[in-house]
Design a protein around this nucleic acid. Structure first.
Length: 707
DNA sequence: AGCACGCCGACT
DNA sequence: GTCGGCGTGCTC
């Protein structure tokens, strides 16, 4: 037998960008290995999982220095070339190493397996797949009996026809991304379902992305009901799996394997699912595409929505972005004709949107002893709902009892010793809690500074609002839902069930309650203090506020019969503000137009492209010194032509857990210009870190959401 | 990132 | 005497 030459194999291993091992590494193997295969390789004294990466070995290292591949995980089909391409694109776009990103988006448990363990998992998966779909718990049971396929509204039919036409026209090229624009209750989900049916009927897999899985149980239930194998689905049962971080490691691996092996037809998941390996992928749906949680906020800061668009383009498959309040990025691309905008006007069943009423706080009589949040007209409106047996939702985006405790005598305030932020007063457990670093103390009975007994809460959070409602409306059943009331497993579900079953008259909550849930009996939604976002230094704050208020308003009047008398109240000191005026008319388009005009004249996204360099140091000087050196270097780079580096500024909460945080914005006219700058800048940033001793860490955020 | 090596301060 | 602090350097 002829001796086979030992060959170089390119392997992506989990080594971060700044380790000097930026690209895939070369190893030796006696046999050829298919790109996308999982292998175990030595790295230093460690032994890691790696992925045989497509492309030529770079030959950078001396052949004599190469080490052999230890083992191949041979029970799995290799990851596809297009999966590798997606990862490679994401790594380069968000400035991370290929291996770091590739391994980070695989199920954590897969990294630990050897061939024996893998075979055991696959065997278990086989059993799981053989069991009836209903018993798998991969999706919640539908609440109502399966209703089969509802008749499409003319608008839905038209949207689907246009979708068909789009796919026909695309043929061998990538169809344009579809922006499905329709208000809450307009029937977007049914469009997703029909599009999914279409793809499944052609033997393809479907990927559905949702912002947060526990906030969208209804969407999950709709898919499970339609495709989960019940008689009503009318055809072959399809396998649905979910992928999100709340799964146990074993479930996550199992579901990932089911997708990778092509056994799962539908994958429903959060942003991490955009990297699911799906060999037969035929459709991607991104629900609530504007939602900020599609942007990963640490590690590789990728946007799952943007990557979904890339992936669909690369695989030449349709992608549907759905929203009642699209991101201005997507809206602008639709304006430019790069996305196909499809509209679902009105609500299914002709239900009206709640009437929006703006209450000018400047004209409100201030009644003694009652804080201004619960105005007399609002209390009257709540009483009216109580009499009618209807529910109300009060939205206040601030948890806790009061954002700060204050001593009238010496002006002491409940600041956090470790952060530049106030500690929030939580009355329920009598604590002062820092929402940034978690530092918690029992609330003092007297002022810690001067001993004065008379320390008072300033401002209000959901806890206080709940208490005041109970005082003002004795007998009303008030329930608060926020991160504090739902921190234990199952509490959110239990509280939502209480609302659905009518055990609650008034629901108080943070933005948590504005997402996803259909509350059939709510006829009044009130935002008591939303003005903060109007004057935020973050240019995206108005966009988020508008989406939040539209979404909150959408909670009311889902029941057509109640819709006519449903109202959304906004208590504001600025009723004349364009945002509220647009909200009053339910006019997203007018809002988007005015915002886009502002963005264009200010040179902000989507008309410019941003990256944010953040630095954390023991001292302000350390963080600032690093950013200043980085800026000086960038300004001298020829590749920075046409890019603007802004001065470093402290982050809005400048100090967290005794770490000083600064940030610096980089603006470019095009993606290409920004990428060029970043590619030449990054190596220097790694080098600079060594020179700035007090610098703890730095991070680059490409296309940052919040600035 | 891990994980070594390496060179200085307070403990059984 | 050594245990351990984290600075510096390396990994195909």
């Amino acid at each position: 037998m002829a001796e086979l030459p030992v060959q170089r194999i390119r392997v992506a291993v989990e080594a971060p960008q700044h380790s000097g091992l930026s690209g895939p590494l070369d190893y030796l193997s006696e046999r050829a290995l298919a790109p996308g295969s999982l292998v175990r390789v030595p790295l230093g004294r460690r032994e890691l999982m790696g992925i045989v990466w497509p492309g030529e070995p770079d030959g950078g290292a001396e052949a004599a220095a190469l080490r052999p591949i230890l083992a191949e995980l041979d029970g799995l089909p290799p990851l596809s070339a297009s999966w590798c391409q997606l990862v490679e694109f994401a790594a380069s776009y968000y400035q991370r190493s290929i291996g770091e990103l590739a391994l980070a988006v695989l199920p954590p448990q897969l990294r630990e397996l050897d061939n024996t363990q893998l075979r055991a998992r696959l065997k278990k998966l086989g059993k799981f797949l053989a069991s009836p779909a209903e018993a798998q718990g991969s999706a919640p049971e539908a609440e109502e009996a399966p209703a089969g396929r509802p008749t499409l509204s003319p608008a839905q039919q038209q949207v689907l026809d246009e979708l068909d036409a789009l796919l026909d026209a695309a043929r061998n090229s990538a169809p344009a991304p579809v922006l499905l624009y329709g208000i809450t209750g307009s029937g977007k989900t049914e469009v997703y379902l029909r599009a999914a049916e279409h793809a499944l009927a052609q033997g393809r897999q479907v990927l559905v992305l949702v912002p947060e899985i526990n906030l969208t149980p209804q969407l999950e239930a709709r898919f499970a009901e339609r495709f989960g194998g019940s008689a009503a689905s009318g055809g072959a049962a399809h396998r649905i799996v979910s992928l999100h971080s709340a799964l146990t490691p074993a479930q996550r691996l199992r579901n990932w394997l089911a997708a990778h092996l092509g056994e799962a037809d539908l994958v429903l998941g959060t942003r991490l699912a955009v990297f699911a390996s799906m060999p037969r992928l035929g459709l991607i749906v991104v629900d609530e595409e504007h939602d900020p949680s599609y942007k990963q906020q640490d590690g590789a800061r990728y946007s799952a929505r943007d990557l979904a668009i890339y992936r669909a383009h690369q695989e030449k498959i349709p992608v549907i972005l759905g929203s009642a309040t699209p991101s201005l990025e997507s809206w602008q691309r639709a304006n430019e004709g790069r996305y196909k905008r499809l509209l679902l006007p009105g609500r299914i069943g002709g239900g009206a949107l709640p009437r929006v009423r703006l209450f000018d706080m400047k004209r409100m009589p201030l009644s003694k002893g009652v804080t201004t949040a619960l105005t007399t007209p609002l209390l009257d409106a709540l009483r009216l709902r109580l009499e009618r047996g209807e529910q109300s939702l009060i939205f206040l985006n601030r948890r806790g009892y009061a954002p700060v405790l204050h001593c009238a005598e010496c002006n002491w305030k409940s600041d956090c010793p470790h952060c530049s932020a106030w500690r929030v007063f939580h009355k329920g457990d009598r604590t002062l809690r820092c929402h940034h670093c978690g530092f918690t103390e029992r609330v003092p009975s007297a002022c810690p500074s001067c001993g004065n007994q008379d320390i008072a809460p300033l401002g209000r959070g959901t806890e206080r609002l709940e208490e005041q409602l109970q005082e003002q409306l004795p007998g009303a059943r008030v329930l608060r839902i926020d991160a504090d009331s739902t921190k234990h497993k199952g509490e959110l579900e239990a509280q939502l069930a209480a609302v659905h079953s009518g055990e609650v008259d008034i629901l108080v909550g943070t933005q948590m309650v504005t997402k996803g849930h259909d509350f059939r009996r709510i006829t009044l939604v009130a935002a008591v203090n939303p003005d903060g976002a109007l004057f935020s230094s973050d240019f995206r704050a108005p966009e988020r506020l508008f989406a939040l208020l539209m979404q909150a308003g959408g909670r009311a009047g889902r029941d057509a019969e109640a819709a006519a008398r449903s109202e959304m109240w906004v208590q504001t000191w600025h009723p004349e503000h364009a945002l509220y005026q647009a909200l009053k008319q339910h006019d997203f388009e007018a809002f988007a137009k005015s915002q886009l005009a502002e963005r264009e004249s200010a040179g902000l996204p989507p008309f410019a492209h941003l990256a944010l360099l953040r630095a954390e140091g023991r001292t302000v000087e350390a963080a600032q010194g690093f950013l200043k050196a980085a800026a000086a270097f960038a300004q001298a780079m020829p590749e920075a032509q046409g890019c603007l580096v802004y001065p470093a500024i402290p982050m809005s909460v400048a100090r967290v857990a005794n770490v000083e945080r600064m940030q610096m914005l980089v603006e470019a006219g095009s993606r290409g210009a920004l990428q060029r700058l970043l590619w030449h800048w990054m190596p220097e940033l790694h080098a600079l870190k060594r020179e700035h001793k007090g610098l703890l860490r730095w991070a680059l955020d490409v296309d940052p959401l919040a600035i």
